[in-house]
C-alpha cells in the first residue's frame, strides 16, 4: 500500500512522516515515533492500555487508523508532565499508591486527565465511569479512584491559587 503523509500534533510538537494508511495510530505512536509509554494490551479495544487523547477525548489508539488521526492534536503519556516534573495527576497516583505493575497506568492517567480537564469535582461514580474502559488487574481500582479524587483536589487547589 502506498504511504500517505501523516501530519499531526503530538504532545505539542508537529509530526510529519510517511505512514501506510492501514497502520493503527498505536503503531505510529509506538513504532514510528518511539513513544512506548502507550501500551498495547489486547489490540481490540477492550483494555484501555493504549488510551491517548485525540483532540482532548480519550480513545483506544489500537482502534484508530492513522489516517483518522491525521491533523489532530494527540496527547500521549509522554506529553502529560511538564519538563522535569510530574503532572498533578501523576503525583496523585504516586501518593495514593495507585500504581502496581504500571501497565494500565498511562491509559488510566490519560482517561483521568480527559475527565479532570472538564470536571474538577467529579463524583466517585463519574470517576469510575471515566476509567471504566481501562482494565487494571493489580490494584482493585480503589487507589486509582482515590488518586483521581486527590488529583481533582490538587488541580482545583491550584486553580483557586491563581
Amino acid at each position: 500500500m502506498k504511504p500517505f503523509r501523516f501530519t499531526a500534533t503530538i504532545n505539542g510538537r508537529p509530526v510529519d512522516l510517511p505512514v501506510n494508511p492501514h497502520r493503527r495510530l498505536l503503531d505510529v505512536i509506538r513504532d514510528d515515533l518511539g513513544l512506548t509509554g502507550t501500551k498495547e494490551g489486547c489490540g481490540e479495544g477492550e483494555c484501555g492500555a493504549c488510551t491517548v487523547l485525540l483532540n482532548g477525548r480519550p480513545v483506544n489508539a489500537c482502534l484508530v487508523l492513522a489516517p483518522e488521526a491525521a491533523g489532530c492534536e494527540i496527547t500521549t503519556i509522554e506529553g502529560v508532565a511538564p519538563e522535569g516534573g510530574l503532572h498533578p495527576i501523576q503525583e496523585a497516583f504516586l501518593e495514593a499508591g495507585a500504581v502496581q505493575c504500571g501497565y494500565c497506568t498511562p491509559g488510566m492517567i490519560l482517561a483521568a486527565k480527559a475527565l479532570l480537564d472538564k470536571d474538577l469535582s467529579p463524583t466517585d461514580q463519574a470517576i469510575k465511569t471515566a476509567v471504566s474502559g481501562n482494565l487494571c488487574r493489580c490494584t482493585g481500582y480503589i487507589k486509582i479512584i482515590e488518586a483521581v479524587r486527590l488529583a481533582a483536589a490538587k488541580l482545583s487547589g491550584e486553580g483557586d491559587a491563581v
Binding site: 499508591g97 502496581q100 488487574r137 493489580c138 490494584t139 482493585g140 481500582y141 480503589i142 487507589k143
Partner: peptide, 14 residues
C-alpha cells in the same frame, strides 16, 4: 502498609 492494602484490594477484586 500501603502496598499491603493495594494487594488486598487487588486480590478482593480478582
Amino acid at each position: 502498609p500501603k502496598s499491603v492494602e493495594g494487594q488486598i484490594e487487588g486480590g478482593c477484586l480478582m
